[in-house]
């Protein structure tokens, strides 16, 4: 068992140096939030720049995960552990954002399922899942 733990030691050391970089005095301590912003903007770009409906839903998912990550980043307390009460531990991460995000993940999947079902329905009605082609079909009908 200790061997397994030792095998992950370099990975853990890497994480600790990354964490030190994020929270350290040299850096502004906001790197995590910036990664979240980059992820969020990538999702946003996918949603507005692509015509494929499945791709748009994947983009929404990326956006969603970035928001979750943002909440979890705020809940972190340096030197704290997961919010499971145990003897001899003083500092815990904030449990409230965890609860909110737990609910949000499940609701997110429910909305994804509904969106994908609508995609299947649109495909059956229009024979395409590309936004511009659907518009072309509709204009043809109006004319």
């Amino acid at each position: 068992m200790q061997g397994i733990v030792d095998a992950f030691a370099p990975l853990y050391a890497m994480w600790q140096s990354f964490e030190a970089f994020m929270a350290g005095p040299g850096s502004p301590g906001l790197l995590g939030y910036w990664i979240v912003v980059v992820l969020m903007m990538t999702g946003f770009y996918i949603v507005i720049a692509h015509d494929n409906l499945v791709k748009k839903i994947v983009g929404l998912n990326v956006f969603q995960v970035s928001v979750f990550l943002f909440y979890i980043l705020m809940a972190k307390v340096s030197g704290g552990t997961a919010p499971i009460l145990a003897d001899g531990i003083e500092k815990y991460a904030n449990p409230l954002p965890h609860v909110l995000i737990l609910t949000a993940i499940v609701v997110g999947v429910a909305t994804t399922a509904l969106g994908l079902a609508l995609v299947v329905r649109i495909r059956n009605a229009y024979d395409t899942i590309e936004d511009d082609e659907i518009q072309a079909v509709e204009e043809e009908e109006d004319a």
Partner: peptide, 21 residues
Amino acid sequence: VAVTGAVLIYGTFDMPRYGDP
């Protein structure tokens, strides 16, 4: 996307630092 991202990053400067108790 670039404009929105820049505004959001500007907003993060008011955030508390990572892991700040």
